[in-house]
Design a binder for these strands. Structure first.
Length: 499
RNA sequence: GCGCCCUUAGCUCAAUUGGCAGAGCAAAUGACUCUUAAUCAUUAGGUUGUAGGUUCGAUUCCUACAGGGCGCACCA
């Protein structure tokens, strides 16, 4: 885009850039020594009563409002900690420097120096003695105007377009302090989870994102190609099989936080790449892992609640969470023994609860759909669903005492799956049989079925201790804790078509 | 992938039945030494998402395409 194509606003800013050059003012600085951020500057003035001047401060940030009155001007500077009012006077700055203020624009990054004082309306303000341009803003940020009504900031004419806010997250963050706070809270939550696991003697590991065989979940993968090896590689859909190899190797407690990739639809709760936490603990079973998950969710919630602007939104948990047995819950909701129904009775039951074309679905699929409608959707408070039917859980160990079930739990909250966990299968004979069943499905055209992972079987044949394993979707956990409806609002740069 | 809806100035939004495309903010010029959605005056800013069609005339009606939103499907 040439300068000729730019609109008048952009041209005006470029013109100022030239005037700055003529005056020998560098529009893009190297550094600025700060003594305070906005919040600490306000605190530094403290309760200084009346006209008592406060200390000198040097603060830097973005110019977000400007009110000129001839020979004086008020402005607000915003930094990550908040906003601070600035007061410019011609008689203090001198005519030349005061005139140079004309070359500033909203959105410029500036640094100022001067004493703090309180205006007659009581607002902590810097009486600017000197200012420096640190970065010229050549493109107007979509600032709204902020009005304070009953002590609360009300934004006028802001940056509302959901598409542009996601595409230009930098602008969204720049003009919306609450968006910054949300992503800061997400980072704090992830840090808290790391501390939680570290404190329990888990070690954080990194396993391959590019995998010759994908597995550990059922999903369409992204496929790429390595030139030198001349072979296809898949972006991982789960971390599971590599983490369990490490259990074989004697790393008894491991976790990984990273992106999984699934080549599927995009909607309110799905992004093609998303953040997954998986952790595995040798010599533990799924009941041990339930306790860990309860404590982990509490720790994550505490970390988010520590962000004051979000505190009210974060649910308070009181472990232990209720446990609901899969079969018993479904039968109770249905009023009959679902597992005992024959094929046609099951179809009729499914259609009564609103499942369409049940005739085309497999038995496990019908059961799963009925469970989703009748039970999962009703689970608002965090609840463990335990002991899934074997036919729904190809990756879990059979339940002790009832081989028709598996030792598996999922954690649900607000009707959404938060975590999925098993007593991990550690029998290589059984594992091979399950892989071969998958391979048969794949040969029959099921794109999501995986092949036989011989290397993983080799690892298991060396002997894998019993272990409990958990997967938790970090994006969804954070959505739940903050009451965020759309996954794109908790991912800094969600996947979108190019403009 | 399917259905419905949306796309107008840098931002937020108007525009009667198909009849000269408007406002606020932002911008430019001027006035103003405690303002805070500052105020006041003046000015500029548009190939109405793109390409076609119907019409004397299209922001408006039709078709296709692009991007987006919502729902469905897929995703245990």
């Amino acid at each position: 885009m040439s300068v000729d194509d730019l609109n008048a606003v952009l041209r005006a800013r470029r013109a100022k850039l030239e005037q700055l050059a003529e005056q020998g003012i560098a529009p893009f600085a190297y550094r600025f020594e700060r003594t305070h951020d906005a919040r600490h500057a306000v605190a530094a003035l403290g309760g200084a009563a009346g006209d008592a001047p406060g200390p000198d401060v040097r603060v830097a940030g973005r110019l977000v409002s400007w009110r000129a009155h001839g020979k004086t001007a008020f402005a607000h500077l915003a930094d990550p900690s908040g906003r601070l009012q600035l007061y410019f006077r011609r008689d203090e700055l001198g005519e030349e420097r005061y005139a140079a203020l004309d070359l500033l624009d909203l959105g410029d990054v500036i640094g100022v120096e001067g004493p703090l004082f309180r205006t007659k309306t009581g607002e902590a303000t810097v009486r600017v003695r000197a200012f420096e341009l640190l970065a010229k803003s050549l493109r107007p940020l979509p600032f709204g105007k902020e009005e304070v009504v009953d002590g609360r900031a009300v934004l006028h004419s802001g940056f509302a377009d959901a598409e542009q806010r996601s595409r230009q997250r930098y602008a969204d963050l720049a003009v919306h302090p609450d968006v910054r706070e949300l992503f800061i809270a997400r980072s704090r939550m992830v840090s808290a989870i790391r501390r939680f696991l570290d404190a329990r003697d888990y070690i954080e590991v990194e396993t391959p994102v590019l995998q010759p065989l994908y597995g550990g979940a059922t999903a369409q993968p992204f496929v790429t190609h390595h030139e030198t090896l001349d072979m296809p590689l898949y972006l991982r859909i789960a971390d599971e099989l590599y983490l369990k190899r490490l259990i074989v190797g004697g790393l008894e407690r491991v976790y990984e936080i990273g992106h999984d990739f699934r080549n599927e639809g995009i909607d309110r709760t799905h992004n093609p790449e998303f953040t997954m936490l998986e952790f595995y603990q040798a010599y533990a079973d799924y009941r041990d892992m339930m306790s860990v998950v309860e404590a982990l969710v509490v720790a994550a919630a505490d970390a988010v609640r520590a962000e004051p602007s979000l505190a009210e939104r974060v649910p308070v948990f009181e472990p232990p969470f209720p446990r609901v047995e899969w079969v018993r819950a479904l039968n109770h909701a249905l009023g009959v023994d679902a597992m005992a129904l024959d094929a046609s009775a099951l179809r009729d039951a499914a259609e009564r609860v609103g499942i369409e074309h049940a005739a085309t679905l497999s038995r496990p699929k019908i059961l799963d759909e009925m469970f989703q409608v009748l039970v999962e959707a009703q689970l608002d408070a965090p609840t463990f669903v335990i002991d899934y039917p074997r036919e729904l859980s190809p990756l879990a160990k059979p339940k002790r005492g009832d081989p028709s079930l598996t030792e598996r739990f999922e954690l649900f909250a607000r009707g959404k799956e938060m975590a999925n966990a098993f007593s991990e299968l550690n029998d290589p004979i059984d594992q091979r049989a399950r892989f071969e069943a998958q391979a048969a499905l794949r040969a029959a055209g099921d794109q999501e079925a995986t092949g036989v992972d011989e290397d993983y079987l080799r690892a298991m044949e060396y002997g894998m201790p019993p272990a409990g394993g958990v997967g938790i979707g970090i994006d969804r956990l954070f959505m739940y804790l903050t009451g965020t409806a759309h996954i794109r609002d908790v991912i800094l740069f969600p996947t979108m078509r190019p403009e």
